[in-house]
Amino acid sequence: MSEAPEPILPLSLLAKNRDKFMALFYEPTSTALQTKTNLHLHILRVKNGDFDLPGLYRELKGNSAAYVLSRLNYQKVLDDPSLMMEVASKVQSQFRKPEKTSGEGGEVILYSLLEGHLGAPKVLSKMELKTSSDHYVHGSDGVHLLRVDDGSYQLIFGESKMYGDAGTLGSSVKRGIKAAFGSIGKVHQEGFDFDTWLVDSELLKEQLDPEKLEALSAIILPSDGGSGIKKHNAFGIFVGYEVDVSDIKSENMELNDIETELKKRAVKAIAAEHDLIRTEIANRGLGVYPFHIYAIPFAKRGNGKNAPGIEKVRMELAAQLGNREVPKK
């Protein structure tokens, strides 16, 4: 039996990294909200009454090199481990220091989900395109390519949002969804001017040999002739949201009961916004696009502006990815 042909773009994450990242979560719950809109809820496993944030930080740090580096440079590190420390320092320097507007942690989460769950390999990441921002579509958080079947592909543009409740209990999910679709709506209105540059990009030329680059060009820019290849633009969205658990009296509950309660609240919070997602798609005229939406809940405890929740997660994640200290208040 002949072997299957090597894909034009293999997944950039190593299999072990993908497996370790996906193992952080319970079995995801996937909901078809519309024909082309799928929502995937990934809930971090609960350890000692809380979502496993240390595990998440650890695996995202492990995934960050493949996210930041081109395939060529990442392969150089794999081939020559002596470069590991030098490259690790360069990767960490690409991430912004921890601050309230730090959003790159969400970008790495989305990248890890699109590769680890959807199986859509990275074409280019936001980090790789920082020096080419004039050509980059509206600051999208990454570009992935999904093979639907032999003659059909989706070019997926990423958008990640991690918002807290902002003083209104339960507003976190709404804020993230509205912000994500607001950004996507702008892309739709202003049009995609990215495809031709993407194929001509020096970044892709350094990663792919001429034969594979030509094959990728045939996918991204299918000719009007008889190639039979169809390419559609699509969107990948990550929404990180808060689940308020400040009323849970952990000292009076068994660990299994705490786990069950956290999962129940996480499911309820995102399920309440199914109609909002449908409305955003309809009102913004986005029904022609496939959507791959990912949601991850984070626990919020206490009240007031300083209550530890998703903002704390954003800061800690930025610190971990950049090997920096979280600033003291």
Results as ranks from 00 to 15, higher is better:
residue 195 D to T: 11
residue 165 D to N: 15
residue 38 N to C: 11
residue 256 N to V: 09
residue 89 S to M: 12
residue 45 R to K: 15
residue 291 F to G: 02
residue 190 E to M: 06
residue 310 I to P: 07
residue 190 E to G: 00
residue 223 S to D: 13
residue 2 S to D: 10
residue 205 K to E: 09
residue 185 G to D: 10
residue 237 I to R: 06
residue 301 R to L: 08
residue 286 L to M: 10
residue 13 L to M: 14
residue 113 L to G: 03
residue 26 Y to N: 12
residue 129 L to V: 14
residue 186 K to R: 15
residue 41 L to K: 09
residue 69 L to Q: 13
residue 278 R to H: 01
residue 187 V to L: 14
residue 6 E to V: 13
residue 85 M to K: 13
residue 112 S to E: 02
residue 147 R to I: 03
residue 50 D to L: 09
residue 283 N to A: 10
residue 29 T to F: 01
residue 122 K to R: 14
residue 279 T to Y: 04
residue 318 A to K: 10
residue 74 Y to L: 14
residue 253 M to V: 07
residue 17 N to D: 13
residue 314 R to A: 11
residue 278 R to Y: 00
residue 147 R to W: 00
residue 7 P to D: 02
residue 232 H to P: 00
residue 223 S to P: 01
residue 289 Y to V: 02
residue 28 P to W: 03
residue 14 L to G: 12
residue 244 D to I: 07
residue 245 V to D: 02
residue 232 H to Q: 14
residue 228 G to Q: 12
residue 215 A to D: 09
residue 322 G to Y: 03
residue 141 D to H: 06
residue 216 L to T: 02
residue 297 P to A: 08
residue 296 I to R: 06
residue 17 N to V: 07
residue 12 S to G: 00
residue 213 L to H: 08
residue 103 G to F: 10
residue 288 V to H: 00
residue 224 D to R: 12
residue 288 V to A: 06
residue 172 S to A: 05
residue 65 A to K: 13
residue 124 L to A: 03
residue 76 K to H: 10
residue 196 T to I: 11
residue 218 A to I: 09
residue 120 A to G: 09
residue 61 K to S: 06
residue 124 L to P: 05
residue 156 I to W: 04
residue 274 H to P: 02
residue 189 Q to W: 01
residue 68 V to P: 06
residue 82 S to C: 05
residue 254 E to D: 13
residue 87 V to L: 04
residue 241 Y to W: 05
residue 5 P to N: 07
residue 150 D to G: 00
residue 91 V to A: 03
residue 328 K to N: 08
residue 156 I to P: 03
residue 102 S to W: 04
residue 298 F to H: 06
residue 146 L to S: 01
residue 95 F to N: 08
residue 110 L to H: 05
residue 116 G to P: 03
residue 246 S to F: 01
residue 205 K to Y: 00
residue 300 K to I: 03
residue 96 R to A: 11
residue 111 Y to G: 10
residue 260 T to Q: 14
residue 174 K to E: 11
residue 192 F to C: 08
residue 221 L to G: 01
residue 153 Y to Q: 04
residue 133 S to Y: 02
residue 23 A to Q: 12
residue 307 A to C: 05
residue 234 A to S: 11
residue 279 T to V: 09
residue 233 N to C: 04
residue 40 H to N: 13
residue 249 K to S: 06
residue 174 K to H: 03
residue 267 V to C: 06
residue 308 P to S: 01
residue 102 S to E: 07
residue 224 D to A: 11
residue 24 L to G: 00
residue 171 S to D: 12
residue 41 L to N: 07
residue 286 L to V: 01
residue 144 H to R: 07
residue 306 N to D: 14
residue 26 Y to V: 08
residue 120 A to W: 05
residue 101 T to L: 12
residue 202 E to K: 12
residue 105 G to L: 08
residue 281 I to Q: 04
residue 34 Q to N: 09
residue 146 L to Q: 09
residue 4 A to L: 14
